[in-house]
Design a protein around this nucleic acid. Sequence first.
DNA 1: GGCATCTATGGAACGTCGTTCCAATGCCTT
DNA 2: AAGGCATTGGAACGACGTTCCATAGATGCC
Lengths: 228, 228
Amino acid sequence: MAASRARRPERREEPLSRERIVEAAIGLLDESGEGGLTFRALARRLATGPGAIYWHVTGKDELLGAATDAVVTGAMTAATATATAGATPREAVRSLAVGVFDAIDAHPWIGTQLARAPAQSPLLRIFEHLGRQVQALGVPQAAHFTAASALLNYILGVGGQNAANALERRPDTTRAEFLDTVSTSWANLDADEYAFTRSVADQLRDHDDREEFLAGVDLIVAGITALR
Amino acid sequence: MAASRARRPERREEPLSRERIVEAAIGLLDESGEGGLTFRALARRLATGPGAIYWHVTGKDELLGAATDAVVTGAMTAATATATAGATPREAVRSLAVGVFDAIDAHPWIGTQLARAPAQSPLLRIFEHLGRQVQALGVPQAAHFTAASALLNYILGVGGQNAANALERRPDTTRAEFLDTVSTSWANLDADEYAFTRSVADQLRDHDDREEFLAGVDLIVAGITALR
DNA sequence: GGCATCTATGGAACGTCGTTCCAATGCCTT
DNA sequence: AAGGCATTGGAACGACGTTCCATAGATGCC
């Protein structure tokens, strides 16, 4: 097995690296959710021991942050491409928002992760791109922060709820079945205490997550443009 | 039987009860955050063993849900009182929103908890009260679900971010110091990649959390009323 | 009253987790 | 060839959620 290959480290099994670890962590998270990310499971997948991982990563928090960062960065670069191609700022905001939405839909663990402390960097990326479109909407400078924050917070709120629903839903039930179950439970709530919720149970049953999300974005954009 | 005994309210130490456990759990969460809620710490505080708690509560998830429920219910009943007293629907929405905001501010662990699965019941309570005010705004029935959802999701998003910030901030630093630190780091970002974020760094430094939050609520309410 | 039964308790124990420690392994320079 | 150093991976530690069980106090039955 000689073959002492030169500089490039690809001869034997590729060595551990922060990148490879983050990649494996994302895989684990996608497959088995937040609880599935374990240093032991990670070590097994990387054919090493738990201790070795700590040479490249300071701990679980940083690893989760890095995984979130990687996914969000990918989603943002993809969304910015279509956003800049799109014409109006309103369409660009929708592209960005739907990019985050889809990323959370594909990786539900991001939803809860974004509502956590050390993930500052991915959030900033989203905030920046949203803010540029707010500028393009012609809002007075003094309202920039408020408008961009409102959009971001709404997106994060939906993301968190989506993640929660993805967690709560049994893996063997379809989305329609799940919606139907919840809608029915809404319809059976106390008539006095939950009058409004009962009255929109049907709208819950028939709604489409993405359309509903975008309708909310439009609502906020409408409120923002009213500031002009 | 009819000859029931109104036995000891406190002959010996008052017995365990779900209520007493939830109360102690809230205290633990408030004092030492999400990580502070431990069945061992809880048992110590209640002068019992970990096993006894499981007789009244099925597990940690349910306990967290019950704690969240208790706090949110309290906040909602308090907020509805002032909301119904207030005149316009817009003011009522603001009262409700600020009620949730203050509750999360006082108990930051709620913020992350509301973006989690089994806490359906407290969310429904908020949703219901928001929805009633949406109705009062005179929005067409078909938009009720969208409007109420947008408000709720925005509130949850802000709550999550607030909770994250409360976690990230060192306990010995004031809010102003923390804001100043973050604002400065924003101002030092890359000029090209983060042009917008840099431009609002000052607005971040000077903003008031609650005012900013309410400005976002107003933005959404403005968008909702535009639907009329 | 005596005995069986049921509710409720709390300590011990199990398995898993994040993390630390450290002896061993290679690779690089000299 | 040798020594230094980055890197590895398995063992061990303490804390966690949870289960188990032996028991205490109250209650039902005769």
